[in-house]
Amino acid sequence: MTREEKIDWLIQYLKKENAGYAAIQEPVNLVEKRRLLRSLMNVRWPMEASDKFYEIQDALLKEELAEKGIVDADSLPTVAEQYPEAELRNPDRICLWQGDITRLRADAIVNAANSEMLGCFVPCHGCIDNAIHSAAGIQLRNECAELMEAQGKEEPVGKAKITGGYNLPAKHVIHTVGPIVGLQVTRQQEEELRSCYLNCLRLAEKNQLSSIAFCCISTGEFHFPNKLAAKIAVENVDKYLMKSGIKRVIFNVFKDEDYHLYTKKFLGTGDF
């Protein structure tokens, strides 16, 4: 099947699952078709699909990943190599990388989830939760739903759960719920963000993972100030590594602002 044939087949399958989708007009443009498919996947409630669906979905996602290009976490330069003057205790085990976290091949990437822990249901939303679930495939939401059903309640802020990575190059996804900030950050919210990083690291170590890539937890839709978030992230990860067997931690940033903030934090500049 061509890429367009795969997309068409998957759209038809998802439309047949819900009688209300019959009126959806299918675009003729390939880009818009792909956007429709992502939207249908985003809003789909967790449930199993046919073997044929998984086969075609997985083939499409792997094809798209190959085009984007996989970035091997072990090949990234460390802070010690990039910034020899860095004021860290473990600069040889920490990396800073700017890019799409769904391209990273690591033992685990961290997802900034919400308390329902089922991924973002807003079609084609720009949050990292949506990006990770869209690239992993519907299997990720299904596994998250199983975990949450077994737990029987929403995920508390600061805790973490681990799942498979499915069609991501990362072996696992560690999901954590960060604090939602209002007018200003409270001491409790600072502690909750600290707990996000520490519980992700503990979970990685418990599962004998060697590498973990953190996104900028809570700084997007949850409005945690970027500078304070970078300070909490770097200081707590660096301290944890003093007694940990984790070999590599990647701070994955997407915005230029965060890249510069992490760099300043490493170097001890920028009034942190």
Rank of each mutant, 00 (worst) to 15 (best):
M1A: 10
T2M: 09
E4K: 15
I7V: 15
L10D: 01
L10G: 10
L10V: 08
E17A: 12
N18W: 03
A19S: 14
Y21H: 13
V28P: 01
V28Y: 14
L30I: 15
V31S: 13
V31P: 05
V31E: 10
R38F: 11
M41F: 00
W45G: 14
P46N: 02
D51N: 15
K52C: 04
E55Q: 14
D58W: 10
D58C: 08
L60F: 05
K62M: 15
K62F: 09
A66N: 09
E67H: 09
P77S: 09
T78N: 02
A80H: 11
A80D: 03
E85S: 10
L88Y: 00
C95Y: 07
C95G: 05
G99E: 09
A106V: 13
I109R: 06
G119V: 12
G126H: 14
N130K: 01
H133C: 14
S134H: 03
A135R: 10
A135M: 11
A136D: 03
R141N: 02
L147C: 01
M148N: 04
Q151T: 10
V157I: 06
A160R: 07
A160I: 11
K161Q: 14
Y166H: 12
Y166I: 01
Y166T: 05
P169L: 07
H175F: 06
V177D: 14
Q184S: 14
V185L: 11
Q189L: 02
L193V: 09
Y197V: 02
N199V: 06
N199T: 15
C200G: 12
N207D: 05
L209A: 10
S211G: 02
F214V: 12
C215N: 11
C215A: 10
S218E: 00
S218L: 00
S218V: 00
G220T: 09
F222A: 12
L228I: 07
I232W: 01
Y240H: 12
L241P: 08
S244C: 06
V249N: 09
I250W: 08
N252F: 00
V253Y: 11
D256Y: 13
Y262K: 08
K265S: 06
F266L: 01
